[in-house]
Design a protein around this nucleic acid. Structure first.
Length: 575
RNA sequence: GUCCCGGUAGCUCAGCGGAGAGAGCGCCUGGCUACGAACCAGGAGGCCGCAGGUUCGAAUCCUGCCCGGGACACCA
């Protein structure tokens, strides 16, 4: 909640009780940011909502509330809006105090979550032996941001990278490698990716090979020495490739966060045994299935969740069930967050339902699937290369960085050499990440490079620019800013009010798992800064005005830097 | 067929019970002897998919329908 709201809400609640009696205790004032500047800073619609139960017209309600409202220390005299709103304008000195409080607080006003939860965030989860591609972009970026935000507000976040290291594809991969007589010591991730494509083609066209591939899966899962050895090296090569990509993206995922599907393998027979004992499994068409109430297939028949396949193998249903149990019982999770493609929502509905039925997912533990939409090309179809292949993440970032470098030149950036290329990388990656985070995550978005890397409008580069400009200004000031002591100008007040809204913005992301709220907030701060610069000279001012404005700039810089960091975007000093 | 998402300015999207529905891009008019104009000030541009309903009040909640996307048994 906005720091000022914390102070105002109790006053409003008290006024309601004083005016209309104790039975009106607990009415939420629904204090909101004013919808228009002339309405001040905050508004409440209490008179409108109280009109009915008090049987008084809204203006009469408002009069009685105003007579009881004691906010003189915080606000200018409250005003009655024509439609039945009460409008509140903070006193400049109160606003200044709020900004100063933010300046002396590492959390910038965010109050640590109480109680702090242990939250497991499952994200990224690429497949071994495949280069990361657009399909992994959103999970990786959104998951990293959510992990950062949840951690910032005081939760104990455990990151889990549920890499696909145990699927049936390994049969054909290993079989293909052995067939080709290749040396797995020479493999890197692109070579593995190419091997995968050759194996896939052969698997689809050569039944004999397909049979051998399936047998190879059995050998792998049975622990055959040679097979497992090849598999291990494939995994190692892949993880090294992923690490490089995470470093490039600035995503905080390490080997310690990797808990691949294979890590649950030994537990799967026990999952089956326990579910069987609980009477939750039925054999159907050779597979062990759970038929849960409320799930039907396209024919209206009961829809199974397949815990063990007819061939005795396990799919992701079983793995995810084992993972839930592990995360709650062993990791001590209070909450589970899955940042996975929205198309898997039915899967998660089923898995959560079965885990609940089995008693593995108690009601005190919230399990949430944060389903994100697809990345589309400019033709509105799933993003592909001209030849129809999936777009590798590396090539996509290459293009974004090249675009950023070109724009630096175009803008006459004075940066040269390594600083220039590092900045271009930060802008390119930041632009891609911001585009991924700035819209509602549930919907698809169109990957239009020209728009993402545009340095104007609601983009990552624009926020980076706003930060760089502040950094530059503060450097030139040549001193250590003190405190905000005056906020006489409307542009100063507007900026100060926005800055004190930082905790509310971050807390709303933590509550809703919707990062675009933070993006929108930071964008508002950046635009308010532009107006502020236009109307309020800082370095050219003198004395207390200059000092106060510098402090305001410092607060803005900290808000932008912290906000960008939560989004996983580099806050640049120069551009 | 069932279920889940979407449908808001020309385009990309916010807003999801309360005051003339907002932003960016694009378009038009002004503004740089620069604390970084990657900007600012202003303007044009909307039956908020359609129809009912609930409410003092609906883009927002409910119902039905239309359009688009997605999911729906052994890939993950």
């Amino acid at each position: 909640m906005h720091a000022a709201e914390q102070a105002l809400v109790p006053r409003l609640e008290a006024a309601v009780v004083a005016a209309f009696g104790a039975e009106y205790g607990g009415w939420d004032p629904q204090l909101r940011a004013a919808t228009r500047p002339e309405f001040g800073h905050f508004q409440t619609n209490l008179p409108l909502r109280l009109a009915k139960s008090t049987a008084l017209p809204a203006p009469r309600v408002a009069e009685r509330l105003l007579a009881q409202l004691r906010v003189d220390d915080l606000c200018l005299p409250p005003a009655l809006g024509g439609q039945g709103f009460i409008n509140l304008t903070l006193r400049p000195e109160f606003l200044a105090a709020q900004v100063n409080a933010l300046l002396s607080d590492d959390l910038l006003g965010v109050r640590p979550a109480a109680p702090s939860q242990r939250i497991v965030v499952d994200f990224s989860s690429p497949n071994v032996a495949k280069q990361m591609h657009v399909g992994h972009l959103r999970s990786t970026i959104i998951g990293d941001t959510l992990a950062r935000v949840l951690s910032f507000v005081g939760h104990d976040v455990v990151r889990r990278n549920h890499v696909g290291d145990w699927g049936t594809q390994f049969g054909m991969l290993i079989e293909q490698l052995l067939d080709e007589g290749g040396d797995d010591g020479d493999l890197d991730l692109p070579a593995l990716d190419a091997l995968y494509r050759r194996a896939r083609t052969r698997f689809d066209g050569d039944p004999a090979f397909a049979d051998r591939a399936r047998a190879r899966v059995v050998a792998l899962q049975a622990g055959d020495g040679q097979t497992v050895g090849v598999w291990r090296r494939m995994v190692a090569v892949s993880l090294a490739g992923f690490d490089a990509m995470y470093a490039r993206l600035g995503v905080r995922l390490t080997r310690a966060d990797v808990a691949g599907e294979s890590s649950y393998h030994d537990d799967l027979p026990r999952v089956v045994a326990d579910l069987t004992e609980a009477g939750l499994l039925t054999r159907s068409e050779g597979a062990l299935c759970a038929f849960l109430p409320g799930f039907t297939n396209r024919d209206g028949a009961p829809l199974p969740l397949i815990v063990r396949k007819a061939d005795g193998g396990f799919g992701y249903d079983a793995t995810d069930l084992a993972a839930i149990r592990h995360r709650i019982d062993t990791l001590g999770a209070d909450r589970l967050v899955y940042v996975v493609d929205v198309r898997q929502s039915l899967h998660f509905d089923q898995v959560f339902a079965l885990a609940s039925a089995a008693g593995w997912l108690p009601t005190r533990v919230a399990a949430q699937h944060v389903g994100f939409g697809m990345v589309l090309g400019e033709d509105g179809k799933p993003f592909k290369t001209r030849s129809g292949d999936t777009v590798s993440l590396a090539s996509l970032l290459d293009a974004a960085e090249a675009k950023a470098a070109a724009l630096l030149d175009e803008r006459g950036s004075t940066l040269t050499g390594p600083a220039r290329s590092a900045t271009a990388r930060a802008i390119g990656v930041g632009a891609v990440k911001y585009a991924d985070l700035a819209g509602g995550i549930g919907r698809d978005y169109v990957f239009a490079l020209d728009r993402l890397v545009a340095l104007a409008g609601n983009t990552g580069p624009y926020l980076q620019y706003a930060h760089a400009r502040l950094a530059s200004l503060l450097d030139r000031s040549g001193g250590v800013p003190g405190r905000v002591t005056m906020l006489d100008h409307a542009a100063e007040q507007r900026l100060a009010l926005l800055l004190t809204g930082f905790p509310g913005a971050v807390e709303s992301v933590a509550a809703t798992l919707e990062p675009h709220r933070l993006c929108g907030y930071l964008y508002q701060v950046a635009t308010a800064l532009s107006v502020f610069y236009e109307e309020c000279p800082v370095l050219r001012a003198s004395g207390d005005v200059r000092a106060s404005r510098l402090a305001l700039c410092l607060a803005a810089r900290r808000v932008l830097a912290t906000g960008l960091d939560l989004l996983g975007i580099t806050a640049l000093e120069r551009m």
